[in-house]
Design a protein around this nucleic acid. Structure first.
Lengths: 180, 180
DNA sequence: GCGGTTTGGTCAGCATGGTTGGCGTTTCTC
DNA sequence: GAGAAACGCCAACCATGCTGACCAAACCGC
């Protein structure tokens, strides 16, 4: 038989009658399969609204990411931004240079280290980033409100667990900056 | 001043002292900003392991998506798959045709409607999909286990809220199929 | 102050995976 | 039998990743 019968995914699930596994039902393979679907459709729902705005301006998701993280960390160095995005200097350059040329982002030499080009959003850049955020805010607010505070806390815990070390460190840094 | 001062994001947050807003703290703008970060880093952590395997085989994430959804819905039509992926026929063709040519996916004319080409994973395709899934399973299991069942339930609720109608319908269909 | 390292920019070339528009075949449906 | 639907394929274009190479400016250790 070449094809996977409908019930096959469930076959690897632990038997439901096993007493020790009672609390581990949420770790069943079928639940993990569902998680794949949720992440695919959920992430797409999250990115679609800004993607539409960006398309009108002839930009892509990569531009949004740069605007977002420069907004999150004003004065970030090019190197740090590269680390966060996980792309190469050349890939970033192709997105960053137009953003600078069109006046969305402003560069300023570092005071301690003059080799660095610290990145900031201009007024224009902050305005665009805000428009993009507002479009995403609608989706996020709806999801958060429908789900409620407890669910949101759970969502955060799971997303944190999905990240690699670098991502987790970055998020923690953002939270520290927020509290201070 | 061209740049956004550090505290600016928090400025749009509702005042913490407002009594009616006590339960709505999780809807603060700073929380939504954090959600953006969580989704970016979390989704990346989720996709990195299969991406690495795929790269070794000269494939990309698009191939994985096809393998995943054909595995989820054996016998799916090309049209339905296009609807789920949200891409064009041409884009799908460029990924699907090689998968068929290399024996990962098998096509079979529909019995009711002979125009349709129903898609199935071959043994080889199911094996590859499983390898990809296993790599993702590690990340998912770790995240789910660390977070616990309550958090997982919350995660699901939020992700569902992020989806558009089509995504939600598709996920519900998967769950119905699971229960039956 | 000199040499090596680090930060950043840039050029050329390539691959993947999206897009549009158009065209053709088979099959279904009225 | 006509029109619509499901699918395949062609050409062309675009966005965004990649590698490899090379360059300039600034920093740092000796």
């Amino acid at each position: 038989m070449l094809t996977k019968p409908p019930g096959m995914a469930a076959m690897s699930d632990p038997p439901r009658s096993a007493p020790a596994a009672r609390d581990l039902l949420f770790l069943r393979e079928s639940e993990l399969r569902l998680a794949q679907d949720l992440l695919f459709f959920g992430y797409r729902g999250f990115t679609t609204p800004p993607d539409r705005l960006l398309a009108e301006l002839g930009m892509g998701r990569a531009h949004h990411r740069v605007l977002h993280f420069v907004g999150r960390r004003p004065g970030i160095t090019v190197g740090d931004l590269l680390g966060i995005l996980g792309i190469t200097k050349q890939s970033l350059g192709r997105v960053l240079q137009p953003l600078i040329a069109q006046g969305y982002i402003h560069q300023q030499p570092g005071r301690l280290d003059k080799r660095q080009r610290l990145l900031f959003l201009t007024e224009k850049g902050a305005a665009l980033e805000r428009r993009l955020f507002e479009s995403q805010k609608e989706v996020l607010l709806r999801a958060y409100r429908e789900a409620g505070p407890t669910a949101v806390e759970g969502f955060r815990r799971v997303m944190r667990g999905l990240m690699d070390e670098a991502g987790r460190a970055e998020v923690e840094r953002m939270e520290r900056a927020l509290r201070s």
